[in-house]
């Protein structure tokens, strides 16, 4: 089974090929806003280097965000089209899940910069030692003000939490100040690695878990939680 992973959700442009549990190749390139120019040429290159043709693919996995909406649509469109042309299954996977799945630790807090003193976060728990299950999602992806994270994670203040991703030092500082026990993940787990997406994708697809390519879309984030409503202070004259 040959699975192609595509991730254009963040500044990292990721492409990987996994063949039945064996990683064939991987690109992770930090490119600001050039995904539209770079994705397909890179895909052509990885196919050529590995002497693979697009029609050899058995499945595709794609990151669904959070991230730049335009970036997300580039990756998702590519996955949809491959799914449609070759009638292969496609699985969309949240970007923060890819990050968390690529790190170690019993409790993992994955972060992406949402700017303006906020982060996108998701919180996961490692599966039982001898199971091949996926990491368990405790809090799904959402946007939050960094200052509010201690409150959000309050139930886990006694556990050791591994923090990965953008703004990890800043968030770590805030959590430490609230007496959380934290650990920082390794730098290579701070971005959604394409190889991890390929691994997750293959595992999901092997279990028959795929998405309807006609419905597949980016995870457009909903209303951020626990923001202050400034209506009273600025709303009237």
């Amino acid at each position: 089974m040959l699975t192609l992973a595509i991730d254009s959700s963040t500044d990292n442009l990721g492409l990987a090929l996994m063949e039945s549990g064996q990683l064939r190749g991987e690109f992770n390139l930090s490119l600001k806003r050039q995904h539209s120019e770079k994705l397909l040429p890179l895909m052509e290159e990885i196919f050529e280097l590995l002497e693979i043709e697009a029609k050899d693919l058995d499945g595709a996995a794609v990151a669904t965000g959070p991230g730049s909406f335009t970036g997300l649509r580039i990756g998702i469109t590519t996955a949809k089209m491959l799914g449609r042309i070759f009638a292969i299954p496609v699985k969309g996977i949240p970007t923060l899940e890819i990050m968390a799945a690529g790190a170690a630790g019993a409790y993992r807090l994955a972060l992406l910069d949402a700017r303006r003193e906020r982060v996108y976060y998701a919180f996961y728990q490692q599966p039982e030692a001898d199971s091949d299950d996926f990491i368990k999602e405790i809090y799904p992806p959402a946007a939050v003000r960094i200052a509010e994270l201690p409150e959000v994670l309050n139930d886990y203040s006694q556990k050791q939490i591994t923090i990965i991703g953008e703004k990890k030092l800043e968030v770590g500082k805030v959590l430490k100040a609230s007496n959380f026990s934290i650990k920082y993940g390794e730098p290579e787990s701070d971005l959604p690695r394409a190889a991890v997406l390929a691994r997750l994708g293959e595992n999901y697809l092997k279990r028959g878990q795929k998405d309807d390519i006609y419905q597949l879309k980016p995870a457009y984030l909903k209303k951020p939680q626990a923001e202050i409503n400034w209506q009273q202070k600025y709303g009237s004259n």
Binding site: S36, L39, L40, M43, E44, F47, A54, K55, F69, T70, R73, I74, T77, T78, K80, M81, L82, I85, F86
Partner: peptide, 19 residues
């Protein structure tokens, strides 16, 4: 509009590469 253009342009690129 760039965001819109990129949807079909990306789709066309994928078709070009795939076929």
């Amino acid at each position: 509009l760039v965001g819109g253009l990129l949807v079909t342009l990306t789709a066309a690129k994928t078709i070009s590469l795939a076929l």
